[in-house]
């Protein structure tokens, strides 16, 4: 296959974001079609160069073909909708049903969420797993909060180590999810600004005190509601086929939910903090997108045999 046609297939592969199980079949079928077409064109008397040019014209724009392939395969089942929205519903229920008062419930819910996230991670990272992975970042946050309670000298020593570890962990998770699709990475990170916003509203000095618990009790219904909003967002995300609609939904939902968080924190979040949280929210979308582009460009510059997820050509 010529480099122009290999590039055509590569473009479709990159933009259509197929699951590995479908990718080989869909691209293999397209390659067979191209071979048939080239044979027909060269048999009709065209040179190889002319045949390639005509073939590319007849195939149509790779972005159009990739978009249509994406839309044919992107819609998840209702089972996936249930699985993807469940962690947000469980986490929201902790607050709306006041389970958070009981450490036992907290441990059970977070244990179930972590267990299912690990299971999904090691079983092919299905579409539903990314919303569960959001909460796997919570233990890392919890360790950070506990460091505040260390004696002053120790905390000065531990905090830089912790920040390095937390940044590595977050980066590792983002890299792994971006390899599949940057949008899934954004789905995973979407609750982060919401959780940070609520935490700062409840414990502005980063310490959990009696007044933090009072504030949490006051805000609990709204905390629960914000996670139910995330559950609805993820459910709609799974069912929507069009990529641009998926991106619009995540951005709109993230910004609106964060604005609601600020509104219902009764003045605990000031303007600079709100701006900071909004920047984090934009980071949720831009960092995975930019990382994916960087990986793609790096992958393109490698020789074909070194590229990741290279499809066998006929």
């Amino acid at each position: 296959m010529t480099s122009e046609l290999a590039e055509y297939i590569e473009n479709i592969k990159y933009t259509s974001k197929l699951q590995p199980a479908n990718e080989a079949e869909v691209l293999g079928e397209l390659e067979t079609h191209i071979e048939d077409k080239l044979r027909e064109l060269t048999d009709s008397g065209l040179s190889e160069e002319e045949a390639v040019k005509a073939c590319l014209h007849e195939l149509g724009s790779p972005s159009l073909v990739a978009r249509q392939i994406y839309e044919a395969y992107s819609q998840g089942s209702w089972k996936q909708v249930f699985m993807a929205s469940l962690p947000h519903i469980l986490f929201g229920a902790l607050f709306t049903l006041n389970w958070w008062h009981y450490p036992g419930w907290l441990v059970i819910v977070l244990g179930v969420i972590s267990g299912i996230a690990v299971y999904g991670w090691w079983h092919g990272k299905p579409t539903w797993v990314f919303s569960w992975l959001s909460y796997s970042l919570l233990p890392v946050m919890a360790v950070g909060i506990l460091l505040v309670y260390l004696p002053k000298g120790w905390s000065l020593l531990a905090i830089p180590v912790y920040i390095a570890f937390a940044a590595w962990w977050l980066f590792h998770m983002v890299i792994q999810t971006v390899k599949k699709d940057w949008l899934f990475s954004s789905v995973m990170l979407l609750p982060m600004p919401i959780i940070i916003g609520w935490f700062l509203a409840v414990s502005p000095d980063w310490k959990i005190t009696a007044s933090s618990l009072e504030r949490a009790t006051l805000m609990a219904p709204w905390i629960g509601l914000s996670f139910l909003a995330l559950a609805l967002t993820v459910a709609a995300f799974i069912r929507i086929r069009q990529r641009w609609l998926r991106i619009g939904l995540l951005v709109l939902s993230g910004v609106i939910t964060l604005s609601l968080v600020v509104h219902y924190t009764y003045g605990q979040i000031n303007t600079p903090l709100f701006v900071g949280l909004m920047l984090v929210m934009w980071g949720v979308f831009l960092v995975p997108l930019l990382l994916e582009r960087r990986f793609r460009n790096r992958n393109k510059s490698l020789p074909k045999y070194l590229r990741t997820n290279t499809i066998k050509t006929g």
Binding site: D36, L59, G60, P62, V65
Partner: peptide
Amino acid sequence: GYQIIKELEARSQGYFKFKEGTLYPALHR
């Protein structure tokens, strides 16, 4: 796929002509 394109073109006497790459998403749907 390729046979479908040819058949469609022949039976419609050239009236219907797919952008060939878009046939496959339609078949997959």
